[in-house]
Design a protein around this nucleic acid. Structure first.
Lengths: 337, 337
DNA sequence: TTGTATGCGTTATCAA
DNA sequence: TTGATAACGCATACAA
């Protein structure tokens, strides 16, 4: 491995001079600069980022921890985060917690050990509290994405989940539905909780009673117990004309189960969900969804984090960005009389 | 930041002893071990991976460079890679080259600077040659995923692209199609090249002439010029009854354009493609595809790479894994008389 | 304008 | 069983 000393020796200068050329710091004669540059090219020198990080006490690395890499919401978010990082000269370390608290814990260890400059994280749920406290303890700047965690005050980018829940449910009501079920992620996830609240509020506003049996708490990830969901689905009485899925993954699972049962959407039952289905919505613009600006979650989150890292000394107040959602009406809702 | 010296001082031992406790190396009395462990807990000590990497000359980091993070083929591949890495105690640094040679070049710089232990890469195309040569020059172990690069001999995991092209085309022929167009990625990408070859071979075997105007070279990424594709589509004469898309992204773009033109699939025209559309294929099992084992690409690739890294001294021969594909027949192909 | 000494946090080597 | 010292590759402070 070529080091600055190799360069220095070959160029007949000190290592320090080489360092200065690399970093453009201090005054250097044009002649030696050229000479050093030449030798660096010849030897294909690339600075050792590890050594640099050690002395500079910064890695220019940001860790992005998401909960489901196969979910288009998170991949789009990741792309936004990466674009922003790139713009500011940071690189992204990337992890997938799989909606699993244990995997998340492992990643927190990795994060702490890698001395990354900051962390973007979509926590697996309220229990992530202890993990986030560890980050605080070690003074690692982080920003929450998509999900709040009670007990943690920090920069955060979230959606207007309650509003979305309200809008989506009211949309169904406006279409004549009065018997609406909801399958949701765990209530230990703030977005799920708030979406459910929006659903409850909308029903209340429409003078529609809430039937607790028509609400199922499942998971937001792809590792759900389909049997469990199936049993619940089969238990729904026939008056139920619509189902709200708490996210896109649940929507896919629900549609799959309905298909297995020979139920047509929307003829037999209407289905809507939170979050769009990714680029493949254009293959078949079928599902009516309330869509979030996934890319912006990542982009703004990364931007906010990097700003905080760079203005470490100044005591900026915590920022909370709430991104609006948009109802996209397609074909999965039947209009009732 | 708590260091090994803080622990040493508080535990009344030397730094070396602490190091030994951390790494379970050398012989240590149970008493001091306990004492050190206790202090480490108290002070919430986490080893500095950066310092460790510097002295050990290894980072336990693998860089995974893919070309499109929004493509389910690559996200599924990533998940496989991450699972394998996790199993072997490696972490994954992650980048998205966006099918862009320049971005890829930037990432190569990052990779070289980060002194990662190895690289998993889906090259943007044959022009990636120089980038890969840089990796070789710096003796960074890498493995190619999904795409070969002429001039580079290394470990590689690829699909049976020509076979797939043959199978997919023969499927259309078997359904009575004889006027088949193909929109493909750039022929500077080996998989695109081989898929096209399979298409040509199948036509030849079926005694069907190849019409060059019915073949369009576009891109595999989401940044395609849709106008260009649209113009080609509009130029296709009516005898054309089927279109093969070189990957899932192209398929989506094609379907979108067809929809805009009021063309129904498969009634007006049949469409098939390489690679499945991700979990959302289950929302609407519509597109007939030839699907690759995306997860295995990542898993086996990572495994192979790590084995090579760990057996660095032994001169293992290069390995080439060819993963088979599977035709999944759904509803996007019309059966002709 | 250039060079020397020192330290970042850790581990390997050698000695005690 | 333990500790002192040097080294990994680089950058900062200070000196020349």
């Amino acid at each position: 491995m070529v080091t600055i000393y190799d360069i220095a020796k070959k160029a007949n200068v000190s290592a320090m001079t080489v360092s200065r050329v690399i970093n453009n710091t201090g005054r250097i004669s044009e002649k030696t600069r050229k000479k050093v540059k030449l030798v660096m090219e010849e030897l294909h020198y690339v600075p050792n980022q590890t050594a640099r990080s050690l002395v500079l006490q910064q890695t220019h690395l940001i860790f992005l921890l998401i909960t489901d890499i196969t979910n288009p919401f998170f991949t789009t978010l990741s792309r936004g985060a990466e674009d922003a990082a790139r713009k500011y000269g940071y690189k992204v370390l990337f992890g997938n917690s799989d909606e699993d608290l244990e995997k998340e814990k492992d990643y927190i260890q990795t994060i702490l050990a890698s001395r990354v400059d900051g962390v973007l994280i979509t926590p697996t749920g309220d229990s992530s509290l202890t993990h986030l406290e560890m980050l605080q303890q070690h003074q690692v700047p982080f920003i929450l994405l998509d999900r709040e965690v009670p007990g943690i005050v920090c920069d955060i980018v979230v959606g207007d989940s309650r509003e979305s829940g309200l809008t989506l449910t009211e949309h169904l009501i406006a279409k004549g539905h009065r018997h609406i079920a909801m399958i949701n992620g765990s209530s230990t996830i703030s977005s799920a909780r708030h979406r459910l609240q929006g659903y409850r509020d909308a029903l209340k506003l429409g003078d529609i009673p809430v039937v607790e049996d028509w609400i199922l708490e499942s998971g937001f990830g792809s590792n759900n117990q389909l049997d469990h969901i199936a049993a619940w689905l089969d238990s729904l009485p026939s008056p139920v004309t619509a189902i709200i899925a708490g996210n896109n993954v649940l929507a896919v699972q629900m549609i799959t189960l309905l298909r297995q049962r020979g139920k047509r959407v929307p003829d037999d039952i209407s289905v809507v969900c939170f979050d769009d289905l990714g680029p493949y919505s254009s293959v078949d613009p079928f599902m009516t969804v309330i869509s979030q600006q996934a890319y912006q979650f990542g982009y703004l989150g990364m931007q906010t984090l990097i700003e905080r890292i760079q203005d470490k000394e100044t005591d900026q107040p915590w920022r909370k960005l709430v991104l609006p959602s948009e109802l996209i009406e397609r074909k999965s809702v039947l209009e009732l009389e």
